[in-house]
Amino acid sequence: MTNLRERPHGVTIAIPNWNHEYLLGRSVGSALRAASELHKRGISSEVLVIDDHSKDGSLTLLRQLEALYFQHGLRVYLEAHNDGPAETRNVALRLARYRYILFLDADNELLPENVHLFYKSIRETQAALVYGNVIVLSAEGRTEKLYNSESVQDRLFDANYIDTFGLVDSLQILELGGYVTSAGLEDWFLDMQLCASGRLVVFVPIAIGFYYMLPNSMVLENSPEHVRMEKRFRRIFDQLNLRKGNLMRTRHLRYHPDLGFI
C-alpha cells in the first residue's frame, strides 16, 4: 500500500458488493463509463469492486468483468470473510489508488457525465465529503424518493438524510479513523463525525445518480436496532442537546464549480 499522503489526485470509484450479482452489470457499467468520462477530462480514475464474501454468482461475474475491463481500470478485491458494509468501505479506503473515492453501492447507478463536477467541487472546497441528488427508483424504474437533496443542517443530528453515495477525501476520512464498524449505520455516523469535527460536508445541487429500491432493502428505519443506534448516537454527538445552538462550520454549504458557494 502506498503512503496515504502520497496518493495521487484522481477518483477511485469503489463499489462494495454483497450478493448483488444481478445488479453489478448496471453499477459497474456506469462506473466504467464515468471513468472514461473522467479520463477524457484528464482526470485519473479507476473502478474498484470489493466483494464482501458473496455467496451468489458475484465472484464468477466479477472475475469475468475484471478480465474484460482490466485495461479500462477495473480491479476486483475479494474479501475472505463477510465483514459488513463498514469494513468493506474501509478496505476501499485502504486499497484505493487515488485520493478521492466515490462510493457507489452495487444497487446504484452513476450519471457518468456528472462525476467530474463532484471531483472539481471536492478539490476546490477541500471538503471531506461532497454529495448530490440521488433519485430513488423502484425496481420498475418508477420515481419513489429523493435522497441527498439538501445541504447539511442541524437536523442531521436527528435523522440521517445523506446516503453514502458521494465522493470522499480518503485522507480526511482515514484521519478520523475511517468508517466505524461497531456502530452500524456507518454512513450517518461518519456524517455526524465529520460535521462535529469541523470538516466540510458540501452539497452539490446536481444529480449524481440513481438508487434502485429492492425487496428486503437494508434500510429499516423503524427497526429496534435502528432505534437503539439513534440513542447511542445521541449519547455520542449530542448528549447535552447543545448541538443545535453550536452552528457547524459546514452548515448549509452548497457549491457548484461554475458558481462557487451558493
Binding site: N133, E150, A207
Partner: peptide, 11 residues
C-alpha cells in the same frame, strides 16, 4: 440538454 443541470428540490 445535458445531465449536468442544476436540480434543487428541497423539502
Amino acid at each position: 440538454l445535458g445531465t449536468q443541470g442544476v436540480f434543487y428540490l428541497p423539502n
